[in-house]
Amino acid sequence: MSRLILSRRTLIRAGGAGAGSLLLSGCDKLFENPTFRHTLEGAEDLHMATQRVLGRHALAREFAEADMSPVFRANGSREVADPVYRRHLAQGFAQWALRVEGLVEKPLTLPLDTLKSMPQRTQITRHDCVEGWSAIGQWTGPRLGPLLDLAGLKPQARYVVFHCADLYHGRPYYESIDLVDAFHPQTILAWAMNGKPLEQAHGAPLRLRVERQLGYKHAKFVTRIEAVASLDGIYGGKGGYWEDNGAYAWYAGI
């Protein structure tokens, strides 16, 4: 009798495992089908359209100092190996300058001091990583919109690309946003965090804050801003490091 129960139990277990692995490999197989995958990925357009309809100009919530995370986790590249970057870091970025170019009337070269002397915005916001964690910190820097106006965007410009000094797993990090987010009042180029100049681990000397999107959009170590008409042909063509190398969504408001 006990043998019978055992064998029945084994049978049920084997059946369950069989059905389970069939389901699993089925889902994995289905995901390899380009049409199916493309359909699922199409939800990204739906997300962006919905968010733009419901909250095109909405501001991300800002917090009080008392709400800030005791320790703000640094993620992605925490150090930059590039010798030019390391020389600037050693000099406190005194000789460093941000370049603004691409589809602009007047390309700019902006030293850090110039960026600091422009009208500043300080905001305490929640940083949400795609992995699921959140940290609240304070960011200070000039708004991106007026800076782009200074350079004068050409009418063909549709995206703003942020080129970074770091290599992540051997490939250059970069990100991009569209003009709705670029001109959003909370989109700033932060040079200070929690009241102090940005540390290397958090993206010194300049980090993009695009508050209504997930952490990987907030490019660190920004050295060059390029206005473009299309993201095709820029690195992997999908508009960002994680978009190119990890199938993450370009629109990261979800």
Partner: peptide, 21 residues
Amino acid sequence: PYWVTIPSRYSLAGARIWHLA
């Protein structure tokens, strides 16, 4: 473990594509 996740091999991006669609 892999037998309760989609995709079965670690992929945050892949899981988000499934989940959010």
